[in-house]
Design a protein around this nucleic acid. Structure first.
Lengths: 110, 110
DNA sequence: ACCTAGTGCAGCCATAGGGTTGCATGTCGT
DNA sequence: ACGACATGCAACCCTATGGCTGCACTAGGT
């Protein structure tokens, strides 16, 4: 089992989506309850259109889902994808540390 | 216990660092063994200076560590921070899904 | 029917950041 | 001592992208 396996582009996209403060503020806001883009724009210091863009990228990577409620579109946070990539990252990190421990072991056996 | 806790800036920085393909190629390369910036520049299709910049941000978030070996600087991947943030992300994702399940439960009890 | 509120789309601006070249410095081997 | 290689720093270019304004459209409420 090789260590340096090419990381799925999905992981990169997910991390890229999570690498923005505004997006996290949106996610945490949604964590307190479903909301529409306009509703989010009211509680956050950014425009609705900006929020709409962010919601688009969040939806792209599967972090949020849309629920049509009448004329508005409610957004809802989904934890599944996040947890999945988190586990992949954890595995990678563990693998690195495992390799490091092996290196250390070799060094001490000299 | 509230769900929408403000996410640590460390997590955002880490995700931002992981949101770049080139950085991942560097990390996976380092996963196969320690290497200097110049050594990495030889196997990757980017300049040494570009790699140096990436290594700087990776070092910033604690994904790599430096080991001075004579005149060159060897870089080494560290899994600890990655695993730590991965667990935090997993917890957040689980929390979201827990909330979602609760919502569903409420909906069904009507 | 009309007004209001929510959404979508397009265009524009400005900055961040990934990538480059160039040069100066520093260190190892011979 | 000197040449070769590794690093550090600075300046620069260009694209991606976060943010905005503006407009057209649609769907509810009264």
């Amino acid at each position: 089992m090789r260590a340096g396996t090419a990381v799925s582009g999905q992981v990169v996209a997910m991390c890229s989506a999570l690498g923005d403060e505004t997006r996290w503020s949106i996610l945490t806001a949604l964590g307190e309850g479903d909301a529409s883009a306009s509703a989010l724009a009211r509680r956050l210091p950014v425009t609705r259109q900006a929020i709409a863009k962010h919601l688009a990228v969040l939806h792209e990577v599967g972090l949020v889902d849309t629920v049509k409620a009448g004329r508005e579109v409610q957004y809802r946070v989904i934890g599944t994808e996040l947890s999945a990539t988190a586990r992949r990252l954890d595995a990678i990190g563990t693998e690195w540390d495992r390799r490091l421990a092996a290196l250390k072991h070799v060094a001490e056996s000299l």
